[in-house]
């Protein structure tokens, strides 16, 4: 289990349910590593500022995380974490490796505003 203060996604079914019942969802799929931790923590800060967006995480090594690992948008990714943004159930953006707060804020205003 990831040691973050975000809500965790633990199964494919839960992810499906979350993206079906929330218009805007951001999921950071990673480990407790140096490139992932800053993204979880930036999500925690932005969660306060964007109550309309569901910010969640998912453990990269859990078998069900294949639902993110195998997304076509993540096919060429070779850097953790894989961060996926959904709107109305569809993937609208996916990033690989660490992103800073400025980059994440830009993505939010580009695809989840």
């Amino acid at each position: 289990m990831l040691q973050t203060n975000l809500e965790h996604i633990t199964s494919k079914e839960q992810l499906q349910q979350v993206i079906e019942s929330n218009e805007k969802v951001a999921v950071c799929c990673g480990r407790m590593g140096p490139m992932c931790i800053p993204v979880y923590e930036i999500f925690e800060v932005l969660r306060e500022k964007h109550p309309d967006i569901k910010f969640m995480d998912m453990e990269f090594d859990s078998p069900d995380a294949e639902v993110i690992r195998n997304l076509p948008e993540c096919r060429t990714f070779r850097g953790l974490p894989f961060t996926v943004y959904y709107r109305n159930g569809q993937v609208v953006k996916a990033t690989t490796s660490i992103q800073n707060a400025k980059q994440i804020k830009e993505i939010i205003s580009e695809v989840l505003a």
């Binding site: 490139m35 070779r78 953790l80 690989t96 490796s97």
Partner: peptide, 17 residues
């Protein structure tokens, strides 16, 4: 190419290689 061929962390991304 950060994350798609270029990395800055062996513990994070080593196993992709």
């Amino acid at each position: 190419l950060k994350g798609s061929g270029i990395s800055y962390c062996a513990t994070c991304d080593g196993e992709f290689y």
